Lab assay of single mutants.
Amino acid sequence: SRHTFEINGERWTVEGVSEELKEILRAAERASNDEAERLLRLALKLI
């Protein structure tokens, strides 16, 4: 499935992501810059 999210003013669209990964991306959208970066690094390990 496709998911579009915005982090630090940048929009991203990813396809074929699991519900778990979507949850991480949604958390990154709400997080501070440092926390968002940490969550994105974690998410990339899952891809």
Rank of each mutant, 00 (worst) to 15 (best):
D34Y: 11
L40C: 05
E23H: 12
H3D: 13
A28W: 09
S18F: 05
E37S: 10
E10F: 11
L39G: 00
G9L: 03
E20Q: 11
S18I: 04
V14E: 01
L40D: 00
L40V: 05
L25I: 05
A28L: 11
L42C: 09
V14Q: 02
A28I: 07
L21K: 00
T13M: 07
L46D: 02
L44A: 04
E15H: 13
L44K: 05
W12D: 00
G16L: 09
E37N: 12
A43G: 02
E23T: 12
E37C: 14
F5A: 01
F5Y: 09
V17Q: 04
E10I: 15
A43Q: 00
G16Q: 07
G16S: 09
N8C: 13
V17T: 06
K45N: 10
E37F: 12
S32T: 14
R38N: 07
G16W: 11
L39N: 00
R2I: 14
N33G: 15
T13D: 06
G16R: 06
I7M: 03
A43L: 10
I24N: 00
V14M: 08
R11N: 08
A31P: 01
L46G: 04
V17I: 13
R26I: 10
I47W: 07
R26Q: 11
N8M: 12
T4Y: 11
R41M: 10
R30V: 12
N33W: 15
R41L: 13
E37L: 14
E20K: 08
E10L: 12
N8I: 04
L21T: 12
T4G: 03
K45C: 11
A28Y: 08
W12E: 00
E19P: 09
T4W: 12
R11I: 15
N33H: 15
A27I: 07
A27M: 13
E10Q: 14
L25R: 00
E35N: 04
H3S: 07
S32E: 12
N8V: 03
N8E: 04
R11Y: 14
A28T: 02
E20T: 09
W12L: 06
N8S: 04
S32I: 07
L25K: 00
V17G: 09
E23D: 13
E19K: 07
L21R: 00
I24R: 01
E15Y: 15
N8Q: 05
S32R: 07
E29K: 05
R2V: 14
S18D: 08
E6G: 00
D34W: 11
R30M: 14
G16K: 06
